[in-house]
């Protein structure tokens, strides 16, 4: 059975790149285009991994991290993918429980490897 990944990302091009790259690795992708949709999808279903942006309309990506890590009965691995590479932001994400933090611009290959490591 293929693994399920939830992607929360509002930038269409990044989304497309992620889709192309991760489909190649055989994952099932679920896509939310803003923070609110992301929170909804996260509550509806169980995923093997969540990949989220930080600056998005409606809900901040930090809330997604918080929900995935502390808001549900089970914990889902979370990778944050953001252009906000400030130390304070990274620290905040890790404090909330994020498993990995990748800054944009990113290398798709590196991302795929990091995902594979977390999902197993």
């Amino acid at each position: 059975m293929s693994k399920k990944i939830l992607i929360v990302e509002d930038e269409p091009l990044v989304l497309k790149a992620l889709e192309f790259r991760l489909k190649k690795d055989g994952y099932d992708l679920y896509v939310a285009r803003d923070g609110r949709e992301g929170l909804q999808l996260l509550q509806q279903d169980r995923y093997d991994l969540v990949l989220t942006d930080l600056m998005m309309p409606f809900n901040n990506g930090m809330e997604i991290v918080n929900m995935a890590k502390n808001g549900l009965a089970y914990k889902t691995p979370v990778i944050v993918l953001s252009s906000m590479g400030l130390e304070a932001t990274v620290l905040e994400a890790f404090r909330l429980g994020a498993d990995d933090f990748i800054t944009k611009p990113f290398s798709p290959m590196e991302l795929a490897v990091r995902i594979a490591r977390l999902i197993k």
Binding site: L13, V14, A17, P105, F106, S107, P108, M109, E110
Partner: peptide, 9 residues
């Protein structure tokens, strides 16, 4: 696209 990616891509 170039804005978002780095590395070999």
């Amino acid at each position: 696209m170039n804005r978002h990616v780095r590395g070999s891509v």
